[in-house]
Simulated assay, not measured.
Amino acid sequence: MSPTIRSLVIPVSDLDAAKAVYSALLGAPHTDEAYYVGYNVDGFEVALNPGDGAAGPVAFADVEDLDATRDTLLAAGATERDAPRQVAPETRICVLADADGNPIGLRGR
């Protein structure tokens, strides 16, 4: 199975202000928590994540084996920005960067 980009995580410095704007655009969120606000846009996840808004959005590719894909990208010259971490019972994420510093998000097991 090839990786599929199914989500975009947008870091925001003011969650309430961002939620007002994105809710006006996308409708009511399916998840509305202090640590994550998620919208389903025809099967594509748009998420607001409180944090450093200057870091910019990250598109996440769903992969079967997060560690193997991460190792392949690191061997190809990517660098690690955020180490793998558990975000749900069966889901881990990490963020790498290409040679220009552009983020590459991976989501898998």
Rank of each mutant, 00 (worst) to 15 (best):
A18V: 04
A18S: 14
A18N: 08
K19M: 00
K19Y: 00
A20S: 07
A20H: 05
V21E: 03
Y22F: 14
Y22W: 13
Y22K: 10
Y22S: 08
Y22R: 10
S23I: 07
S23H: 01
S23P: 00
A24T: 05
A24D: 03
L25R: 13
L26Q: 03
L26M: 08
L26T: 04
A28R: 15
A28V: 10
A28F: 04
A28W: 07
A28S: 13
P29Y: 10
P29S: 08
P29V: 09
P29E: 08
P29A: 08
H30L: 11
H30G: 14
T31C: 02
T31M: 08
T31Q: 12
D32S: 11
D32W: 02
D32H: 05
D32I: 04
D32A: 11
E33H: 14
E33T: 13
E33A: 14
E33P: 06
E33V: 02
A34G: 13
A34L: 11
A34D: 15
A34Y: 01
A34S: 15
A34R: 13
Y35G: 08
Y35D: 14
Y35W: 13
Y35S: 13
Y35N: 10
Y35V: 14
Y35M: 12
Y36K: 13
V37G: 09
V37Y: 10
V37K: 12
V37E: 09
G38E: 15
G38R: 15
Y39M: 07
Y39A: 06
D42R: 09
D42V: 12
G43R: 09
G43Y: 00
F44W: 11
F44Y: 14
F44I: 12
F44R: 10
E45P: 02
E45G: 11
V46Q: 01
V46G: 01
V46L: 02
V46W: 00
A47H: 05
A47T: 09
A47N: 10
L48F: 01
L48E: 01
L48T: 03
L48I: 02
N49M: 13
P50K: 09
P50R: 08
P50I: 06
P50A: 10
G51S: 04
G51A: 03
G51R: 03
D52I: 04
D52L: 04
D52M: 04
D52K: 07
G53L: 04
G53T: 05
G53S: 06
G53C: 06
G53D: 05
A54M: 06
A54R: 08
A55T: 12
A55G: 07
A55F: 05
A55E: 11
G56P: 02
G56R: 05
G56A: 08
P57Q: 03
P57M: 05
P57W: 05
V58F: 01
V58S: 04
V58A: 03
A59G: 05
A59M: 12
A59F: 14
F60T: 04
A61D: 12
A61N: 09
A61S: 15
D62S: 15
D62T: 15
V63Y: 02
V63N: 02
E64W: 00
E64Q: 01
D65Y: 04
D65F: 02
L66E: 11
L66N: 10
D67Q: 14
D67Y: 03
D67V: 14
D67W: 01
A68I: 00
A68Y: 00
A68R: 02
